[in-house]
Amino acid sequence: MKATGHCISIHILTLIVFLKCLTVSAGEGLDRRSAEAQSPAGEQRLQFMLSLYRRCADRTGRPRQPRRLGSNTVRLVRPSSSPPVSTPAADPWHTHSVDYELKILPKEKLLKVAFVHLRAPSLRHQPISCDIAVTSRGPAGETSWGGRVVFRAEEQWTEMDITPHVLERTADRLSLAIQYRCVQESPQSSRRRRTRELSSERAQLREPALLLYLDDKGKTDWQNLHGPEPVSPPHSRKARQVGSIGSDIPNYLQKNSVVRNQCKLHPYRVTFRDLGWEHWIIAPYKYNPHYCKGDCPRILHYGYNSPNHAIVQNFINELANNDVPPPACVPYKYKPISVLMMEKNGSIVYKEYEDMIAESCTCR
């Protein structure tokens, strides 16, 4: 019963972690996700975030190593825009007027901002390059900047870093006028390439999404934080025993401690459909948090990584007062998982949650 109780407690804590961080209604999530995928641009934005997720996480949701994003959260903000400005068919400039809601939560730090330029299927199989002119409208007046993006033949999207133009913003909304002028590149020979200017009707670059790279812990150097564990020197195991009270108790380590139902790690696979969260959690489909279950032995050797308190508590339960419970079988180390989800306002978020998969067990 005790082990079962601990198992239930672990699952409850796991659910609480998600519920605190992801407080949205499943019904609302269903409406948001279906609405986002109804439009071609919405489907394209969703596919972009799925592509980002697959680059950063494996099929089980575990972040790939090394982590290359430099942040633990990426939020794709869809634009709210007016219809494209009508221009003559021969005009090479194609204009979008867009607004973005810069949703930054209190604990999040904005590290990088990028446009995700999307192109419509009309020239999907042709390489094109586009000059971009952007005008930002705000309380301090207008500012302008420009750039250039290139689409290879099969590319549906491309990123453009605009951090210097956005990072020092003061408002919660970003209003922009974005102009594209694109040319189609046609290889003629190995020595030269010919370009052909495209009219705004043919270019049809969609209004870009905004990509916010955020960190909610103030730590971005994933290489140092999550690199391989250092190899222990030969004397480290002996040093750990010397630091344990068990090594000073007469004959402690020599006594027999036979446990049939030994404390250990067990798998437990659950789908987010089982939890009623499939309408707003896009990926992963399955999650294996693992759990720890079993009896803790009377002799807690170094393999359990148990604190001195657990060793003493074992003896108190056995020799002094059995109302004091013996140590419990609980997780010792954890691994993170990556989640792709839909927010209430329609933004799609990639987020890495720490301490979500139990990796080993201990008695404490």
Results as ranks from 00 to 15, higher is better:
residue 126 Q to F: 05
residue 327 P to V: 03
residue 226 H to A: 05
residue 142 E to A: 02
residue 251 N to E: 14
residue 108 E to D: 08
residue 101 E to R: 09
residue 364 R to A: 11
residue 304 Y to C: 01
residue 292 C to T: 12
residue 229 E to P: 08
residue 96 H to P: 02
residue 339 V to N: 06
residue 18 F to M: 08
residue 94 H to Y: 10
residue 130 C to L: 05
residue 352 E to D: 07
residue 122 S to L: 01
residue 285 Y to M: 02
residue 194 R to A: 14
residue 5 G to Q: 03
residue 45 R to Y: 09
residue 145 W to L: 08
residue 257 S to F: 04
residue 239 A to G: 13
residue 65 Q to H: 10
residue 191 R to K: 13
residue 158 T to E: 09
residue 76 L to Y: 13
residue 230 P to E: 14
residue 155 E to A: 13
residue 317 N to V: 10
residue 94 H to K: 08
residue 147 G to F: 01
residue 180 Y to L: 10
residue 239 A to F: 15
residue 226 H to G: 07
residue 255 K to W: 04
residue 240 R to K: 12
residue 188 Q to F: 01
residue 112 K to M: 07
residue 83 P to F: 06
residue 275 L to S: 00
residue 84 P to Q: 14
residue 166 V to I: 11
residue 47 Q to C: 15
residue 192 R to M: 10
residue 337 I to D: 03
residue 4 T to H: 03
residue 79 P to W: 04
residue 221 D to W: 01
residue 23 T to N: 08
residue 284 P to T: 02
residue 343 E to W: 03
residue 3 A to P: 04
residue 282 I to V: 15
residue 89 A to E: 09
residue 209 A to D: 14
residue 352 E to S: 07
residue 216 D to R: 04
residue 130 C to R: 02
residue 63 P to W: 02
residue 316 I to N: 09
residue 144 S to D: 04
residue 266 H to Q: 09
residue 81 S to H: 11
residue 137 R to W: 04
residue 205 L to T: 09
residue 301 H to C: 07
residue 195 T to G: 01
residue 306 S to K: 01
residue 234 P to G: 02
residue 189 S to P: 05
residue 103 K to W: 09
residue 320 A to D: 12
residue 137 R to C: 00
residue 323 D to K: 15
residue 231 V to D: 04
residue 162 I to C: 10
residue 361 C to L: 04
residue 264 K to M: 10
residue 293 K to Q: 10
residue 5 G to K: 00
residue 121 P to C: 06
residue 172 D to M: 10
residue 190 S to A: 10
residue 187 P to N: 09
residue 232 S to I: 12
residue 173 R to H: 14
residue 308 N to I: 07
residue 113 V to S: 05
residue 15 L to A: 15
residue 235 H to E: 13
residue 178 I to V: 12
residue 291 Y to I: 05
residue 186 S to T: 12
residue 181 R to Q: 15
residue 285 Y to E: 08
residue 32 R to H: 08
residue 210 L to W: 06
residue 262 Q to L: 13
residue 229 E to Y: 01
residue 362 T to A: 03
residue 129 S to E: 02
residue 335 K to N: 11
residue 85 V to E: 15
residue 113 V to N: 04
residue 311 I to R: 00
residue 110 L to N: 05
residue 79 P to N: 02
residue 299 I to T: 11
residue 54 R to W: 08
residue 128 I to C: 07
residue 345 N to Y: 09
residue 120 A to Y: 04
residue 231 V to F: 00
residue 106 P to I: 05
residue 338 S to D: 15
residue 152 R to H: 11
residue 277 W to M: 14
residue 349 V to G: 12
residue 344 K to I: 13
residue 98 V to T: 14
residue 280 W to P: 00
residue 243 G to E: 11
residue 299 I to G: 02
residue 72 N to V: 01
residue 11 H to W: 07
residue 290 H to F: 07
residue 4 T to M: 00
residue 98 V to H: 08
residue 105 L to P: 01
residue 290 H to N: 14
residue 168 E to S: 14
residue 104 I to V: 14
residue 5 G to A: 04
residue 160 M to C: 08
residue 358 A to Y: 05
residue 51 S to H: 15
residue 171 A to N: 14
residue 147 G to I: 01
residue 295 D to I: 02
residue 236 S to I: 11
